[in-house]
C-alpha cells in the first residue's frame, strides 16, 4: 500500500534562508506521525504544501497515493485539517460552523457527536456565536471540524494550543482511537513530550530542513542518558552521557569520594533530545545556502 504521505525534495524558498528545503518524508498508512520543530522551522509551510494551499518551487508531494497538485478538492475531502492559527467565522454559531464545513466537505459528519463528547465541548454552547467562545472552545470546535467526517488522513497543526491539560489528554485519546480505526494522523507540534505520548515516529524539522524520522522508542532508547549528581554541600550537576551503564557507574563511584549524596540516571526526555538535535544541527544548517 502506498504511504499516506510521501514527499520528494519538496522545496519552497521565501528568501533570506526561510522556507522548506529538500523535504523527503514518508508516513505510513495508519501511523501517528509527529512532526516536530521550533516556531518558524517550516512545519506549517510543509502542512500547507501537503494540502495544496501553498505550491512548492520544486519537488513533489503525494498524499493518499495521489499527487497533491492533481488531487484537488476530491483529495482534500479525504483529509481533516486543523490549522495552527485557527480562524473561524465569528458570526456563525458553533452548530452552523460544523454544518457549513460538513456540507463543504460533502461528507456526513459521522464522528461529530463522538468528537464533541470526547473533548468535552459543552453542547449548550453550540447554539452560541463563535465570537463569544474562549480560545479553548474554539480549538475544541476546530478539532471537531477536522475529525467529524472521519477522514482517512488527519493533518493537525499545533492541535493542543489553548487546551487545558484534561482536554489535552482527551484529545490524545482521540488521536489513539483514530489510529485504531486505521486513520493516519500527521501531528505537527513543538510540545514534544505530548507528541511522544501518541506518535509512532517523529521527524524533526529545523530551519526548513528535516532530520531523519525515527521511532519514538528508538529516540528514547538511543543510549543517551541524563545524569544528575547531588553533592552533600548542596551542589548539583547534570550532564548527558552516552557511556555504557557499567562504565558510567564505575566512573561515578570513583568521583563519589564520600561526598556524593544522590545520583539520578534517566533516559533523555524528548524535549532534551529535540534540543540536542537542534543544537547539533544549527551550525551546519546555518552554513547551508537555501535551495
Amino acid at each position: 500500500m502506498e504511504p499516506a504521505i510521501e514527499t520528494r525534495a519538496l522545496t519552497i524558498a521565501y528568501g533570506g534562508g526561510a522556507g522548506v528545503f529538500d523535504l523527503d518524508l514518508s508516513v505510513a498508512r495508519g501511523e501517528v506521525f509527529g512532526f516536530l520543530g521550533p516556531n518558524g522551522a517550516g512545519k506549517t509551510t510543509t502542512l500547507r504544501m501537503l494540502l495544496d494551499l501553498l505550491r512548492p518551487d520544486r519537488g513533489e508531494a503525494r498524499v493518499l497515493g495521489t499527487p497533491v497538485r492533481r488531487g484537488g478538492g476530491a483529495l482534500r475531502r479525504r483529509i481533516g485539517y486543523l490549522p495552527g492559527d485557527l480562524a473561524l467565522f465569528g458570526s456563525l454559531s458553533g452548530e452552523a460552523t460544523l454544518e457549513l464545513f460538513s456540507r463543504l466537505a460533502e461528507r456526513p459528519p459521522v464522528r461529530r457527536d463522538e468528537t464533541l463528547d470526547r473533548v468535552g465541548f459543552p453542547r449548550h454552547a453550540l447554539s452560541r456565536r463563535v465570537k463569544g467562545y474562549s480560545t479553548g472552545m474554539r480549538q475544541m470546535l476546530g478539532i471537531a471540524l477536522a475529525f467529524q467526517h472521519e477522514p482517512e488522513l488527519l493533518i493537525l497543526d499545533e492541535p493542543t494550543t489553548g487546551l487545558d491539560p484534561l482536554v489535552r489528554d482527551s484529545f490524545l485519546a482521540l488521536v489513539r482511537a483514530s489510529r485504531e480505526r486505521g486513520q493516519t494522523v500527521f501531528l505537527s507540534s513543538h510540545v514534544l513530550d505530548e507528541v511522544g505520548r501518541v506518535a509512532d515516529r517523529v521527524a524533526i524539522i529545523h530551519r526548513g530542513r528535516l532530520h531523519p524520522a525515527e521511532r519514538i522508542d528508538a529516540l528514547r532508547l538511543g543510549g543517551t542518558r541524563m545524569v544528575t549528581l547531588s553533592w552533600r554541600d548542596g551542589r548539583r550537576e547534570s550532564f548527558e552521557s552516552d557511556e555504557e551503564p557499567a562504565r558510567l557507574l564505575a566512573r561515578l563511584a570513583a568521583r563519589a569520594d564520600g561526598v556524593l549524596q544522590d545520583v539520578e540516571i534517566r533516559p533523555l526526555g524528548l524535549d532534551a533530545i529535540f534540543r540536542r538535535i537542534v543544537r547539533e544541527a544549527a551550525p551546519a544548517a546555518g552554513a547551508r545556502p537555501p535551495a
Binding site: 500547507r48 494540502l51 476530491a74 483529495l75 482534500r76 490549522p83 485557527l86 480562524a87 473561524l88 463543504l104
Partner: peptide, 17 residues
Amino acid sequence: GRGTLDLLLATGLERRQ
C-alpha cells in the same frame, strides 16, 4: 486576511469554485 480561507479550501472546495 482572517485565515479562514485555508479552512474553507481544506474542505475540498476548489479555488475556481
